[in-house]
Amino acid sequence: MEDVTTLTKIQLDALREVGNIGSGNAASALAQFLNRKIDMAVPTATILDFKDIPTILGGPSTLVMGIFLKVLGEISGRFLLLIPAQTSIKLLRTLIPGCEIDDPLNMGEMESSCMREVGNILAGAFLNALSALTQTPMLNSLPSMTYDMAGAMIDNVIAEMTAVSDKVLMIETSFIESEEDLKIHIFLLPEPKSLMLLLHKIGVN
């Protein structure tokens, strides 16, 4: 399948459930990691015009922390975590004893490495759940991280997926830490060519 616009409502519902299972596991991993209660928003699976993606992320010039990984295996895709500046500061201060960082622009090697590890753990937990669900091994590439404009990150992530179609399938969820407004957005973009296999593996054709 190269054109995601032909997905039916049932197929989209199934993909939303994939998002639910993956993010549920990632949320528990994050809760354990931070030793806090984490709430999860109901995931969505939507077909979007790529032109609208920067707006969904808060506008093309909104500054965010982005952690990107490729999903490798028979079912492949891209995994992007977007973390607002305030949340990344809170995460760093929680995870690194004595950390007093106040602007992600001032991150050093220790902080960058810590954020990449957050990405690794969340992506790993998400993909493990998916792997168990589909009985298909899934691996992730090493995480790559940057703090910059959301619009600029999206270019890199979706460019190759939009060669044929202007539409992109995006499974999205966010985590909210109950008291402190800790927000993390997870985007999974399955490669169009592995979508059929993914749907087949979860019993939806």
């Binding site: 090493l142 790559s144 940057t146 990150m153 890199n156």
Partner: peptide, 16 residues
């Protein structure tokens, strides 16, 4: 033409 997420594996292409 920048590479926001520099490839972590050397076989990956650089779109930028």
């Amino acid at each position: 033409g920048s590479e926001m997420f520099p490839p972590t594996e050397d076989y990956e292409n650089n779109i930028g």
